[in-house]
Design a protein around this nucleic acid. Structure first.
Lengths: 172, 172
DNA sequence: TTATCGTGGATAATTTTTATCTGCAATATG
DNA sequence: CATATTGCAGATAAAAATTATCCACGATAA
């Protein structure tokens, strides 16, 4: 069981974007630089966040990304599912059926108990992630993060955020 | 997030081995045939289960695998960890540090909140798996599985299990 | 008009997973 | 004791997923 690197990047980017003011945006290149990631690859992940309506993108100079809704309404689960996909980690291949003795398919209509147990565990995992709001992550960092690191983050945001002439102010 | 195919195979094999009598064993080749899996690859997984002390192996003709302890004392978590490894799915790469602005390492002594939240979710996942005993999986199948499928499984076990002359009867 | 930015597709490099094969040690059986 | 059967370890290879790069395109602020 393994989560792709993209998840960590996506969460950090979302957390950073939670700190930009109003409807300002931040370019993907700046986010990539901020974390020392390859820009072209990070854009793929940012695209997935956009497709999942977690981020909004604005083209053009002064364009970039911003949160599509308030950080209180974004959970870690939203982000993880957007990057890793919604399929469960355990996929029942129904290997019971692959034996030498062929049995009618009607014998396998009930879902196998193993599958059920694995999916239950995964629901617990997702439930735990769904309880963590992006705003909490940011708040915790603001409260307990090292001052030097925090100052650097703030400066970075200040330097790269771009105010919008007119944008959707739908911080619903 | 993805679990390897080996997990499903391993659980099914363990469940099958839970049905062999006493200290009898069943060869890996038979287990592979029973699920239509490649024998040489399945052996890798069975080896991991053996290394994790979930299975015991007996060499020689009449040899094979058996549970290393009672099915009541084996959980799905035991098996998943044996196959997938004990490392958490989320690994914090500390990408905060990789930005253009270098900050002293002492600024990052506190574990990042994102990491903490992800690990908490994974603990919930593992806790859920730890609650499911192999014996429950087997019992549920015996109680609710399709009779035809069950009969085939029983016949298969009966045909391939091999009684041991003398073996550890440590079904602790 | 120009420079900046996101988008999408094609492509490639890298790593992980899955799979196979071979020689070796252990051990019931006769 | 010889033989056949089994598990084990290591090398190797095939396949798939992940990670990464590049380029042509449309949008837009200045």
């Amino acid at each position: 069981m393994k989560l792709g690197e993209g998840v960590e990047a996506a969460i950090h980017c979302a957390a950073t974007l939670a700190s930009v003011e109003g409807n300002s945006t931040m370019p993907g290149a700046a986010l990539a630089e901020s974390f020392g990631l390859s820009p072209s690859y990070l854009l793929k992940h940012l695209n997935m966040l956009t497709a999942a309506r977690i981020l909004e993108s604005v083209p053009g100079p002064a364009g970039g990304y911003r949160l599509a809704r308030a950080a209180e309404r974004i959970t870690l689960l939203d982000i993880v599912l957007a990057i890793e996909g919604r399929e469960p980690a355990f996929r029942c291949g129904e290997i019971r059926r692959n034996g030498p003795v062929k049995i009618d398919a009607s014998a396998y209509v009930k879902p196998c108990g193993i599958n059920a147990a694995m999916l239950r565990a995964e629901r617990a995992y997702r439930a735990a992630l769904a309880e963590v709001k992006l705003s909490e992550i940011v708040a915790e960092y603001a409260a307990e993060g090292d001052p030097r690191s925090r100052a650097a983050s703030c400066a970075f945001v200040e330097r790269h955020q771009r105010r919008q002439k007119s944008g959707s102010t739908d911080q619903t």
